[in-house]
Nucleic acid binder design. Sequence first.
DNA 1: TCCTTTTGTGCAATCGTTTGTTCACGCACT
DNA 2: AGTGCGTGAACAAACGATTGCACAAAAGGA
Lengths: 356, 356
Amino acid sequence: MIVLFLFVQIGMKIFMKNKKTTIHDIADELGVTASTVSRALQDHPRISDSTKEAVIETAEKLNYQPNNIAVALRKGKSNILGVIVPTADRNFFASIIRGIEEVANDAGYNVIICQSYDSFEKEKNNIKALLEAQVDGILASIAMETVEHSHYEKVLKKGVPLIFYDRVNESINASTVVIDDFLGAYRVVEHLIEQGYRRIAHFAGQQHINIYKERLRGYRQALRDHDLPIDENLIIESKLKIESGKNSTQKMLSLSTPPDAIFSASDYAAMGAIQVLKERGVSIPDDTAVAGFSNESFTSLVDPPLTTVDQHTNRMGKFAAELFLEQVKAEEGNFITRKTVLKPELIVRPSSLKEK
Amino acid sequence: MIVLFLFVQIGMKIFMKNKKTTIHDIADELGVTASTVSRALQDHPRISDSTKEAVIETAEKLNYQPNNIAVALRKGKSNILGVIVPTADRNFFASIIRGIEEVANDAGYNVIICQSYDSFEKEKNNIKALLEAQVDGILASIAMETVEHSHYEKVLKKGVPLIFYDRVNESINASTVVIDDFLGAYRVVEHLIEQGYRRIAHFAGQQHINIYKERLRGYRQALRDHDLPIDENLIIESKLKIESGKNSTQKMLSLSTPPDAIFSASDYAAMGAIQVLKERGVSIPDDTAVAGFSNESFTSLVDPPLTTVDQHTNRMGKFAAELFLEQVKAEEGNFITRKTVLKPELIVRPSSLKEK
DNA sequence: TCCTTTTGTGCAATCGTTTGTTCACGCACT
DNA sequence: AGTGCGTGAACAAACGATTGCACAAAAGGA
């Protein structure tokens, strides 16, 4: 009885776990050594065709799958790429991730995605986890909260390729890929001016973040270049959420002479503006135009569809991944850090298009 | 001269690569063995407090970071969780991922996300890549195209925990977490009936996918329970993209007696319906109500805001991850596969709310 | 026939950790 | 003094794959 019981137990275990097969199992099966199997699988020239065939055949028979962890340990290369993203559930970043993955996967890399939720602490933890996972490189967009960058310096010191996208920090000697936020903002404002708007407000983001600083700069420059006055009352800094957009819009409407156009540095705040304007019965775009930034997916769906700036996020992700690959390839030689700047694209939609 | 050159080279290398430090380095520094260091770092009781202290101190001094790959190899556990998702850039999945990550990270797991883009081939490749990466488990939502499931059976055979979320397949013996699509649909339709709508159309999804089948079933049942006739002309199957929603709506409008409400199995198709209805000057919700499914983020932003069903995606992700953790813990014993069904929540918004 | 290549494999070390076992030492107890 | 035991640390074998080197057999050349 007991014997029977044990038998059943063991039987189950064998059935259930089906022990992952290794090159040794293949070697045993064929009466060769593991090194021969390893070489055969790599199509090494010194292995005879007959054994290669045999190896491949039994590998399939045993349903062999290489253990990448062992390979990683031996080769000192994990084939894992770490990506740090403030939050993956915004279209902007999701699309960048997609771009990164397309390139990375094709090159044989797996991608680990970490979200910083814009928190400094989380970001530090992410870096730590990624380094411990022995990633071959890190692509990061700096968290809003982050003001001190020693954790990134540590990455460089370990010799791990580091590339920043979108939110970068100039003080760190790493390759970057960003879009030209200045130009994007400039084009939006220029478009509004061409449409005949003259009092253009700007919902600005927090100015310690380079992208928002640049957008404000583009706004100012466009006004200046078209000989329009810059009214500081028309510039409001906020966190650019929907709610902040609503608040800012209310403030604008209570001005003695409200703006006739709103250029928000974020689509979300622009959305808030649209909502408030509609509530108040202000016609868009006839009374007031609205434009956003980022081409979030909802912008084409709202009413009226929102003029915005596309940042070619997918391409941005691809670029970042390619920069990484380049860096890995050039590893032995001294590679040069590169700054890539992508041109944004103005997307004109009805929210700023006056019927003529 | 040559000597000098070599020196510089070596100097640079040391400077640049800063060789990752291992427990052996720590051991050498202190004149003990690596095993002692390893145990010290794990707070093993057989190591004296004094050495523990010394080890921790020099570990910090040398900026030591454990090599998880080596640990993984030794322990046969990678602490990596693989997630397969049709596409990460939809709110629904992004939010699930977020839920998964929250739980998984807390438990010390890294998460690798793979996108199948709803392709069968890609899904198979993803599985292969994840297995080769030696993930400790796989959470998956089955791709639209997938009709054959042997690649998933392989996962089970290898003894790798497998959990399905949202899109499941009953024939595979794995734990699942889904929402009650039947109930969600039922509630939407019931709500529409309560609002006084009588000819309710349904934009259905492809019926080989269980969630869409369930939604259709819920739709039918609700009508039946309220003694309303089921008109097959009011049921259109499509891929539920925005475009298909538009097409379906046009077909509906050309019926001799068009519906007075549209319940779409997806928010995207519902969005298409809204656009066409507005174009045609059909008032929503007075003439025709519209309701969707999934609570995509844009649904609250469009005009009119869209009635839909929230699937508690974040919670769903968390549940899936927790199921995985449970399974790992119970590993040695025979764990029982569990089917978890979450209750969806009806979100009523103006697109179906008649002013009374 | 003898020597040199070439060809096909095996041997063993290695990547960085973990962990079962062994071992030396010191202390207490009889 | 001899025995026994608890402590603290070293030894060595893994985990699965890769790879420089050694080495035998076959092939080719003189």
